[in-house]
């Protein structure tokens, strides 16, 4: 288990993060930009030093301001996936992965290459890879030394939706295969629902809430059997009712709504679509 209680102040922002993270859990860090998600990950990794507080991972102390303990990133046993990939341009795919391993384990590297589907491109240099491939290499590199904690800093935000889904599958596979404790920053509710067992909602430099992904819609009173997170794409009037076009994963769908309901909706909103399972049609 990882317990965190740390404070950090910058010129115009103050952060105080306090939470506990279960071993082998996949946690989504959710929140608006500027709320402190990246700072949380950087403080955990040791790339940024808290002003005060404590970070404990199992019985090991990574940071303790009172006892002047501050392990450098090198000693924290982490994997970090950067938003801009940060692949070493002077090394090929396989060399990037090898560089990450303290002791050689070619079998594991072969397995990783297989998961990220780059076995045939292992000798290519990063500049010849697509954005999605680069991020898959970055993910594989981060786990090549089998770290205790995997941190993903908006790793998927630069990718198109097809690549995103692929990367999500990679993250899920790697998480299952290695049983890593994972923290990933995400803006995408669908992604959070798909991957995470726990969500940390970060707001104004604090962890406001944490719990299972349903807390993202804690205010809704629904108890539907089917739930999908969706984005509102279009709202149009048809006689006395309204038709709302929604994007669920990669599918567009239309749902009717009353004038009353539409009043609180805006195009671009993330919403939850729920349906009670009275008469679902299952097509096999």
């Amino acid at each position: 288990m990882i317990s965190i209680d740390i404070k950090k102040s910058f010129k115009n922002a103050n952060f105080h993060f306090k939470t506990q993270i279960q071993d082998n859990s996949l946690n989504a860090v959710f929140g608006k930009s500027g709320s402190g998600k990246t700072t949380l990950l950087r403080l955990l990794s040791g790339l940024e030093t808290p002003n005060e507080g404590i970070i404990k991972v199992d019985d090991k102390t990574w940071f303790d301001s009172k006892n002047k303990i501050n392990l450098p990133p090198q000693k924290r046993d982490i994997g970090f996936v950067f938003q801009d990939y940060a692949l070493f341009p002077n090394m090929s795919v396989i060399e990037n992965l090898r560089f990450a391993q303290p002791s050689k384990d070619e079998n594991f590297l072969a397995e990783l290459l297989d998961i990220i589907e780059l076995t045939n491109s292992q000798n290519k240099y990063p500049e010849l890879l697509s954005g999605g491939q680069k991020q898959r290499v970055a993910l594989a590199r981060a786990v090549a030394k089998k770290p205790k904690l995997l941190l993903l800093d908006e790793a998927l935000s630069a990718l198109d939706s097809v690549m995103r889904v692929q990367l999500q599958d990679d993250i899920e596979n790697i998480h299952k295969r290695l049983n890593l404790t994972t923290l990933m920053i995400s803006h995408d509710i669908a992604e959070v629902y798909k991957l995470a067992s726990n969500v940390l909602i970060v707001e104004d430099g604090k962890i406001k809430k944490s719990g299972n992904p349903d807390i993202l819609f804690e205010n809704s009173q629904l108890s539907g059997k089917f739930k999908f997170s969706a984005k509102i794409m279009k709202i149009e009037q048809a006689d006395t009712i309204f038709i709302v076009t929604l994007l669920i994963q990669n599918n567009l769908t239309k749902v009717v709504a009353t004038q009353e309901e539409v009043r609180t909706m805006n195009i671009g909103d993330d919403v939850l679509v729920a349906s009670k399972a009275f008469n679902p049609i299952i097509i096999t």
Binding site: P73, Q74, K75, I78, F80, R141
Partner: peptide, 21 residues
């Protein structure tokens, strides 16, 4: 990019190893 150096640190590499490699 700063992230190259930070990536190397998170992979457990010392400052000298990061400089050389």
């Amino acid at each position: 990019p700063k992230s190259l150096i930070e990536a190397s640190y998170t992979l457990g590499k010392s400052k000298l190893q990061t400089l050389m490699h």
